[in-house]
Amino acid sequence: MTVTDPSAHSTAADPGVAADRPEDADQWTAKVRAAAVGALPPQKLLPDRQPAYVASWIYVFGVTTISALIVVIGTGMLLAIMGPNWWHVSSTGLFVNSLHLWSVEIFFFAMVIHLWGKFFMAAWRGRRAATWITGVVTFLVSVGAAFTGYLSQQNFDSQWISTQAKDGINSTGVGAIFNVTNFGQMLMWHIVLLPLAVVVLVGIHVLLVRLRGVVTPFRARTVGDGPPGDDVTTTATGEVTA
């Protein structure tokens, strides 16, 4: 590797540095990079160690959800290559559609277990509420993505689901712009807008997890304490006052 890439050596030397040369310090680019690297240095972005309490199978369901999402998108892309009509007339197409359907089932399967796990760990504690909220929104948008998938199938299912769902959507007024019986519109939402939204949301969610770290356990019971975690006042310096 030659040393012609200035960003390489600057980041390595000092991750928080604003610019390669002092005169560039006012550059927006340099400021954005400094802020990004400052907030999430490589060691924090992709850590090789976790706190000792991160030792349970419940922790694997987030990454399982992302894995399933990758398979969902991959199989969706295979379907896109040959177009929406393909899987109705080709056994290969039907097989790829089956892959797509089952990856969606696993995606939701893992996502819901992830949600249950994070709920029972109260993983929003310690300034992690935004992580929780982006997770809930991701779930919501994913339901929409799956729903528009059902509408894009061009089969009996799509006909029935769209003509039933229209009443719900119409009752909210959203039917004015989101017409579930318009196949072209639903296909666009299913293969462009909603997958993009899910991927962006998952990206933000994961960055927030890395930024804040994995939530620590509730305080342990120690001799002389009341119920776990209750009635203990601390200060910013950590002294225990009651």
Binding site: S98, W102, Q153, Q154, Q159
Partner: peptide, 9 residues
């Protein structure tokens, strides 16, 4: 298990 594909009406 494959996947369902009932013909449209």
């Amino acid at each position: 298990f494959a996947s369902p594909d009932d013909k449209p009406v």
